[in-house]
């Protein structure tokens, strides 16, 4: 599964989402670790665990990815703005 496909999947469920994904290698040199950051108002007022559950559920149903190899970070649009996080202007595939 390519990062772009995962991004499309999340945006398909959360229409207002800004998504940033980068992958890192496991020790077999495979791109198996997904670091996923999502900005969406779907997280508003929800506990952090429930925010993560939203993303896990999206990944769970559509792919059988190794969940332990996914690292999730969630923000609402307001919170992302406060923290100066805006990756829509800089959508390079981060793997640096």
């Amino acid at each position: 599964m390519q990062p772009e496909e995962v991004k499309t999947l999340i945006k398909g469920s959360l229409s207002d989402a800004n998504v940033d994904i980068f992958t890192s290698d496991d020790n077999m040199n495979r791109h198996t670790h997904y670091h996923i950051t999502v900005i969406s108002d779907a997280f508003e007022g929800k506990k952090l665990l429930d925010q993560h559950r939203i993303i896990m559920d999206i990944l769970n149903e559509a792919l059988k990815v190794q969940i332990h190899a996914v690292k999730i970070k969630t923000y609402t649009h307001t919170r992302a703005k406060e923290q100066g996080i805006n990756f829509d202007q800089n959508e390079r595939l981060r793997n640096d």
Binding site: L48, L49, H52, I67
Partner: peptide, 30 residues
């Protein structure tokens, strides 16, 4: 718990989170 990984931390019988969530809640002081 409907959560696929370990560890899992419960408070008053309710799942608070695994490593990612607990680490973030610890950093923020929550």
């Amino acid at each position: 718990s409907n959560w696929p990984t370990f560890p899992q931390l419960f408070v008053k019988g309710e799942l608070v989170g695994g490593n990612d969530v607990i680490s973030e809640l610890y950093s923020s002081g929550e």
